[in-house]
């Protein structure tokens, strides 16, 4: 069985699907075959991975400490039995 080659211009558009395991086995095999003999596409894939890793180490934006404290107080108030 011969594998129809895939040009770089198509490979770069399929790499997220490839990383996600979302490609059918035949297409995935074509990407594997391409990467095995195309260093620039391997570099591109590595750089996509680096981008994803870098994004993962960005500091999380979250609520301010005062906002969280307010919410915790609201939760406490809601569950405090009414004074009798």
């Amino acid at each position: 069985m011969t594998i129809e080659p895939l040009p770089c211009v198509d490979v770069v558009e399929l790499l997220t699907d490839y990383l996600e395991g979302a490609l059918d086995p035949a297409t995935s095999a074509r990407i594997d075959a391409h990467l095995a003999q195309c260093p620039p596409c391997v570099t591109y894939l590595e750089q996509l991975r680096t981008t994803v890793n870098d994004l993962g180490s960005l500091p999380a934006q979250t609520l301010s400490d005062s906002a969280i404290a307010e919410l915790e107080a609201a939760f406490g108030d809601f569950h405090r039995p009414p004074a009798s």
Binding site: A60, Q61, T62, L63, I68, L71, E72, F75, G76, F78, H79, R80
Partner: peptide, 21 residues
């Protein structure tokens, strides 16, 4: 539902970043 403050604090801290996005 039982008013467990630690459980509430935990999910507020864990889920709020994604919720802001």
């Amino acid at each position: 539902r039982a008013g467990d403050a630690a459980a509430f604090a935990h999910i507020v801290r864990a889920w709020s970043p994604a919720m802001i996005h």
